[in-house]
Write a protein that binds this DNA or RNA. Sequence first.
DNA 1: CGGTACTTTGAGAATCGTCAAAGATAGTGG
DNA 2: CCACTATCTTTGACGATTCTCAAAGTACCG
Lengths: 255, 255
Amino acid sequence: MALNTANSTPDDGDTSSHGHDPQSCEACEVRACGMCSSLSNGELDKLRRITRTREYKAGDQIFCDEEPLQNYAAIKQGIVKLSKILPDGRQQTLGLGFPPDFIGRTYGEENVCFASAVTDVTVCTFPKELFNDYLMRTPALEHKLFQLTLNELDTARDWMVMLGRMTALERTATMLLKFSTKRHLGVMDPPPIDGTVRFELPLTRSEISDFLGLTIETVSRQFTQLRHLGLIKIDQQRYIDILDYQGLMAVSGQE
Amino acid sequence: MALNTANSTPDDGDTSSHGHDPQSCEACEVRACGMCSSLSNGELDKLRRITRTREYKAGDQIFCDEEPLQNYAAIKQGIVKLSKILPDGRQQTLGLGFPPDFIGRTYGEENVCFASAVTDVTVCTFPKELFNDYLMRTPALEHKLFQLTLNELDTARDWMVMLGRMTALERTATMLLKFSTKRHLGVMDPPPIDGTVRFELPLTRSEISDFLGLTIETVSRQFTQLRHLGLIKIDQQRYIDILDYQGLMAVSGQE
DNA sequence: CGGTACTTTGAGAATCGTCAAAGATAGTGG
DNA sequence: CCACTATCTTTGACGATTCTCAAAGTACCG
């Protein structure tokens, strides 16, 4: 069942499940770093009353663009992809959500993009109206969400530079660098071995191409070129070793 | 004098001037619609004490990327361009600020982009520390800034789709449509005449190309093509008549 | 009227996309 | 355990779009 149930497409093979109140916010992976970090235990108790946890399998749609916004969500585990689709099917990924990101257009009437699960995902969901009321009465939470939104805006603008002005090779290198350094929380892989950095790419080539504003084939060719330049090594198409961090920086176009 | 004076480049030909407390917030063009609309007259009085007005000539730099953030600003008049520049000089415009937008990275330590005046610009400026203090004590203002930021994020993501997935012609048409319908406040031109929409393009071809992630020449060719398609008419390279709104929508790729 | 800056147009080159096919991986069932 | 299949990825050839470089045209400002 999708987060928004109003217009959820039939036969969409959604395999999500939902539970009741999360029993242990105290033990939550993201209690200390996400939006809940702005809340006292007392305030958290109130929020918990309107919270449901929900799980999605990799590939599930979480909500749809232009659908009425019914629930917000906070990511507990997994990676969420936000994207827009043009009428003729062209797709552009807008960003990735990692724990403890908040998703759903705050104060919005409808969703402004699609959200789907890249990996298996666990979220806490909050009904829009109840959450808005809670938010109005809890300035500390609004402050925290504001800061998360400011970070999202910073990120979006960095990607705008990438999409507007970087070559395919630069985009690919830039993406690898971002993945190697950020957001290891819960989803990323072993720590650096000697000089090299190793991590698992959570996205397929198709998802990467939607992210970088390229085609699958072009992305694949850039990976090949980075391999031939001796900057990276690829195992099983998904595990990346950065062999030459400085070299990768140099071809990424950001000095 | 630039908004941030710490590292302001010498000989930058800056022609801005600054005044003292704005005498009449009540008469301000954006009192009712900008961030100040969240404030009572009493609260506004307090804010006014830390406010200075400042004016910039078209082309002036307002602040620089990676410079310490010293002042925030609210746009009273004119158009501000936000942009980033890659080490090798490639430039990407991130968005335009119109009255009553707020500029400066809220809660940031340094600027995350360049801001420059596209037209002559008048702003109210607020010293960072004092404004942050004020903001912390004024949840209604934070709420308002949050909403402005959410709108900026929506806009940035729309541009991401444009930059990542649209052709040169689609980008150009999309930009014209946005300019024709939005933000007529104080800076735009005569109202629609019969079926057609007429407005002045506030940007040069060079600024347009930085905005659309294209080159000057490509932008020019798209204008020519739109003219040949009978969708627009251009006077003096700056005044645009949209002759066929539906047609322009059709080539803009957004249905 | 002449100079400067901006815009348009043209020709050729480079990058990236499209189409097609082969190779690799993971999952399934015998 | 081993085919067998479906999906994803890589590679190649070719074509289209956009960029680069160059020059001509146009508007603006004294």
